[in-house]
Design a protein around this nucleic acid. Structure first.
Lengths: 325, 325
DNA sequence: CTGTTAGCGCTTTCAT
DNA sequence: ATGAAAGCGCTAACAG
């Protein structure tokens, strides 16, 4: 079934079928009706690949995330996808999971000629960066902040988020602060911010349980075990993610350590999740869906040829105090 | 930059460039080298849209999920995506979120000529079903079981899962069982299975807090409040999802109700999540990543022209007992 | 091993 | 309001 078959049956030319489907206002109600009836009778589905090739509009936006299993990004994906679909765009999902190289993934994506690209984070290989710029495709980087994005940016400062965690714990009177921290780029920046504030307040030594992967629950348990095993004195534990923090809390409870009585615990990021435990977790809340919406809007605007007013949008973060500190 | 530009610079014909990139073994090491050097110097990215049109192979697999924000499907997406990417396929993500109609989404997807389609669930509009069959594209439905799938199927019996929940609670000696249950298709089937077993054991009346949306945390709190407010006597609460169950547990703890001392709580599905709370939740565990892997394998096999041995794969489920019952 | 020819199915452009 | 011609960029099919 091609557009020519439909045209033949409807007694019109292929281009008229195309117009009836894509610009119905350019066609007589009569022919429109004829075409539509043939389409629905035959079950004709226009080949968007051919359309994309000729029109040079793929109607695809690519979205690249690191692994999504830690659930940090699902709200962003959902919002991004919803907004884009509303405008007739489909989402090509790229998951650059641990072993894979983001640049290979993006190289593959570029071949599909997406009209926009959403990237998680700002840490991309220089070569990838160059190729993206050379492609002239609108790009939004998200979940981080930098004065020199590839193109557009929707995120927040991880350094400031780390600083906020430190200040909060200090304000609560804690000085013996331990870290249970995952090993990923953005977490590293938060840690830097956190440590710098602690250092300013005369706390240069911060015992840390470093975990290889970005925060899984079991790692949180191990992290606390490591901290306590090291003999360090801690009145508060800051974690690089809420899932890690949940693990810390579980391990504490198993050991009869009361929270927040004996140890305060603080998390980061997965907000809703932070309410799911008891004690519900004090954490840094990120407007994850907002990031997706703003990214979609920025891409759509640029696709439609508008220059966006703010290339860099800082969505910030909130500190949500619950009963874990 | 097109393949012709590369060909000109390399001093070969376009088809030789095509072969150098797609079938390097058909080309002299010398020309291969020349082509590759031109490609990397110029930053040429082959237009897959054109390639797809001509070769009739889109190298795309579409994956349709209901909203992913409840995190039930992320492991499946991740596994599906990983397996497909390994074979050079990209994932077109379709989220048929609440307000949208799945059939529109799928109609849009068919235009992209995916080589395979993953669908969540078996409840599709008759018209959609017909179109999918007519398309001759390999389809895997997942997360449910039926003797009459569109094409292939990887899932488990929600009825049996519901029955297993009932039997477990009965075996634990519970007869005053309450439900906090979300309102979605598959949850409804589980409920049916659960109620039928209870009825067999002489328990026809089961107080139920029905929630409009599929399991959000806050709904679980409300559900338990509703159950208790109705004056029903309950020694156990079964929930349609782990997130709902977490809400139930939180609400119970706020009211000074001990779990499992006063009330037993049971969840469903989100397995890992069930360990994140305390008391950690007794639940039905689903091999979510396995579903994604098997679905990808089934699709890839059929794409490569192999007939799959088992069109219907029942991955089953496990009952994982934790300290909430 | 390499090249020529043709055409995938659609939409742009220009004409009527 | 409709149509004819052309061609998007690539690869299948065939030839040498």
């Amino acid at each position: 079934m091609t557009i020519r078959d439909v045209a033949k049956v409807a007694g019109v030319s292929p281009i008229t079928v195309s117009r009836a489907l894509n610009h119905p206002e350019l066609v007589t109600p009569d022919t429109l009706e004829r075409v539509r009836s043939v389409v629905s009778r035959t079950g004709y589905v226009p080949n968007e690949i051919a359309g994309s090739l000729r029109s040079r509009r793929s109607r695809i936006v690519a979205a690249v995330f690191p692994q999504i299993t830690n659930s940090m990004f699902v709200d962003t994906i959902q919002a991004l996808s919803d907004c884009l679909r509303q405008e007739g765009y489909q989402v090509l999902l790229g998951l650059s999971s641990y072993e894979e190289r983001e640049d290979e993934l993006i190289a593959g994506i570029l071949g599909r000629r997406p009209e926009g690209i959403y990237l998680t984070g700002i840490g991309h290989a220089p070569d990838t960066r160059r190729r993206l710029i050379a492609s002239h495709i609108p790009v939004v980087e998200a979940w981080d902040l930098t004065p020199t994005p590839i193109d557009m940016l929707v995120g927040f400062s991880h350094e400031k988020a780390g600083e906020a965690m430190a200040r909060y714990l200090l304000a609560k009177g804690h000085r013996d602060i331990g870290l249970v921290w995952g090993n990923d780029l953005r977490a590293g920046v938060r840690r830097k911010g956190l440590l710098s504030v602690l250092a300013e307040h005369g706390i240069p030594e911060v015992p840390t349980g470093l975990e290889p992967a970005p925060g899984m629950f079991q790692r949180g348990r191990e992290g606390l075990a490591e901290l306590l095993g090291s003999g360090a004195r801690v009145s508060a534990v800051a974690c690089s993610s809420d899932v890690l923090a949940q693990g810390v809390i579980a391990e504490a409870q198993d050991r009869g350590i009361r929270i927040p009585g004996d140890i305060a615990v603080m998390g980061f990021g997965d907000f809703d999740f932070a309410a799911h435990t008891s004690p519900s977790l004090t954490t840094i809340a990120i407007e994850k869906a907002m990031i997706g919406r703003l990214a979609a809007q920025a891409l759509l605007a640029r696709i439609q040829g508008k220059e966006v007013a703010e290339r860099i949008v800082d969505v910030g973060f909130r500190l949500v105090e619950r009963d874990s500190t």
